[in-house]
Design a protein around this nucleic acid. Structure first.
Lengths: 174, 174
DNA sequence: CGGTGTATGTTTAGGTCTAAATTTAGATCT
DNA sequence: AGATCTAAATTTAGACCTAAACATACACCG
């Protein structure tokens, strides 16, 4: 019996070109030229995110919290942004920021001020502890990331990505 | 009073170059040359994933389930893979596959066979309903994706991404 | 001067993931 | 045969996210 007519055992690494070829075989006529661009982007994002998550877990921090405090740190003095502004810069929903801030506040990394101004606006400010933690982690993280992508020349790749991001951003903005 | 010394109101779109410049200003000496490559990759991945999630939500399907059934569909006859193999191809943990399969099985999209072979191996097979749903959705999804990235020539971008993925993959493999 | 509008922030319901603990079914050794 | 080993699968605990419902505060207008 051909008990091995389908792969139940060993795993094969499937590349983007294999995926595109498989769809052309299974669904002739469907456009597949986006696959060699989109698949590596998703895989790279996942590899980088996983690597960062594992490193941060060792330090007792989660990636969402680092994203929050490093956005505040990067903004410079006085290290304060509104919930709305944080949502826009972190690219997550306002609800997600509300939850992130609650966690970070419990850990003493940020403080929440009283609502103020026209539509009630809540200022979130980095504490000294949050400031120090951010500096320690971001330096190490950027050094790891620089090692991961290597020393080669990524000028043209960066330019291509910037252009694609602008195009996709324009077309997905409703 | 300078009540607007920090941006609590309107949101500015912050590009990768702004982020790199901010870190050079706030943390001199930290390497920032990975940022113009890594940031657009994360943002593109998020834009594409969000667009896909919204489209699928309208169809009553979630992205994780489509990833599962399209991986089985793409494998070709007899549309069967083990849990382990699915985890490797979908790039998620075995536990996540177990949960995805449980949901998809409840919806009648896949069936789980009895364990078999040396280390117990569970075959997961696409049903006729799952087969049809996949074909309907994948065609539409690839057409949307092709529109999003546009008609330009992405040959060199794809090559650069493939090369970077190989390099990062080699360096993150423990 | 009180209703209506509008933008913000918070809460909640539902769903996903990872890591770790647990279960399970053959293989192997004595 | 029985103990032990091993790899796979499942379960569970803990975190996170989005979308939608809800709460809030001020501006504006009739």
């Amino acid at each position: 019996m051909d008990d091995d007519a389908y792969p139940l055992g060993q795993s094969a690494t499937v590349g983007a070109d294999d995926i595109a070829a498989a769809w052309r075989r299974e669904l002739p006529g469907v456009p597949t030229h986006s696959i060699p661009v989109v698949t590596p982007i998703w895989r790279l994002a996942k590899l980088l995110a996983d690597d960062r998550r594992r490193f941060l877990a060792d330090q007792g921090v989660d990636a969402a919290t680092l994203d929050l405090i490093s956005t505040l740190r990067r903004a410079g003095e006085p290290y304060t942004l509104s919930t709305r502004e944080l949502a826009a810069r972190c690219l997550v929903s306002a609800g997600a920021i509300s939850q992130r801030v609650a966690r970070a506040e419990k850990d003493g990394l940020v403080t929440r001020g009283p609502a103020r101004g026209r539509p009630k606006t809540v200022p979130v400010t980095l504490t000294a502890e949050g400031h120090g933690l951010t500096d320690r982690l971001v330096g190490e993280l950027l050094r790891r990331e620089a090692e991961l992508i290597g020393d080669g020349d990524h000028e043209t790749l960066a330019a291509g990505l910037r252009e694609l991001l602008a195009a996709v951003g324009a077309r997905t903005a409703q």
